[in-house]
């Protein structure tokens, strides 16, 4: 669909342009709500709407006071710190375990591959409210039930930092599995064989040959896992306690109860983070395609 042919009829011309207008409107629908947040976050008033001063672009209509509130308010700062403490650890857990498992899954003979895959992907599919409910009940047990009897634990996980980290790691795993297995599909096995042939042990082969090649997949899986944890609110609401209040949790209570425009400032900062993430992922995707000998998109 590159341009209209010169012989196009009037009807075709009309359709061609109206289709573009429709698509333009849908793109507007996709992007406008996010963009509206940004100017509103500089509102000098405590309103959620454009003031007349803002519309006439007078400088007194704008201020950074909501940002100042975010950076000085202890509630928001605690939430930010909690988010930054939870997400990286959860990501590290899911990336380590997920990459190993993805390598195992991409071997040629794996018994029950389909069932294992379905189990590992399920945290992405099961509604969060159900995962949250299950974890809320289960993590409050001071034991792990097994077919051979209960393994007693000296602690319970509900309301603790580690409980939230474990829950978030579980939620991030499907993303790591999906991205890393996708990278491994294009992986040339003769490379590892060549390395082994030249006398490298399995560990050395992994770190010197396989890891650099699948790294883009691992990193983008890690980014997915990170953003899953960083964004997650349902599970942390149930499994966590006030001490683990994260940024999305603070935003959620803010939206539900006392609606403060500081939320818009936080939202703008989060949008900036997503733009950075998007950029990094695009770079990674191109690098991965180049490494695998495909032409960059």
């Amino acid at each position: 669909m590159s341009g209209l042919p010169p012989y196009a009829s009037t009807g075709q011309r009309v359709w061609y342009y109206s289709f573009r207008v429709i698509c333009g409107l849908i793109f507007f629908f996709l992007i406008a709500p996010i963009m509206v947040i940004i100017p509103l976050s500089f509102n000098a008033e405590d309103f959620f709407t454009f003031t007349p001063e803002m519309l006439s672009l007078q400088p007194e209509g704008f201020s950074t006071k909501h940002y100042e509130d975010f950076f000085t308010n202890s509630d928001w700062q605690l939430a930010l710190r909690n988010s930054l403490k939870i997400a990286p650890v959860a990501t590290l857990l899911s990336v380590t375990l997920g990459t190993l498992a993805a390598i195992g899954l991409s071997q040629s003979h794996v018994p029950f591959r389909r069932a294992i895959m379905a189990t590992l992907i399920s945290p992405m599919i099961v509604p969060l409210i159900i995962s949250a409910t299950g974890m809320y009940f289960f993590y409050s047990n001071p034991y792990i039930p097994t077919p051979f009897g209960k393994i007693e634990l000296p602690f319970t996980l509900t309301g603790t930092y580690w409980g939230v980290v474990l829950a978030h790691a579980a939620l991030g795993i499907p993303f790591v599995i999906i991205t890393v297995t996708a990278t491994l599909v294009g992986f040339d096995r003769s490379l590892t064989r060549a390395a082994a042939n030249m006398g490298a042990g399995p560990v050395r082969t992994f770190f010197k040959i396989q890891m650099p090649l699948i790294l883009p997949g691992v990193v983008s899986g890690g980014l997915f896992a990170f953003i899953t944890s960083f964004d997650e609110v349902v599970v942390v609401l149930f499994v966590g306690s006030a001490g683990q209040k994260t940024l999305p949790w603070q935003m959620f209570t803010g939206l539900r109860e006392q609606i403060s425009p500081t939320i818009l400032a936080v939202a703008t900062l989060l949008i900036a983070i997503s733009i950075v993430l998007l950029f990094v992922l695009e770079v990674l995707r191109r690098r991965s395609e180049r490494l695998r000998g495909m032409s960059p998109g």
Partner: peptide, 23 residues
Amino acid sequence: ALMLIAPLLIFILVSFVMPIADM
């Protein structure tokens, strides 16, 4: 292959599948 998958599978079973079964 199973040894590589096992740690994650156990992790998911304990942290995710068993909670759902419990529910």
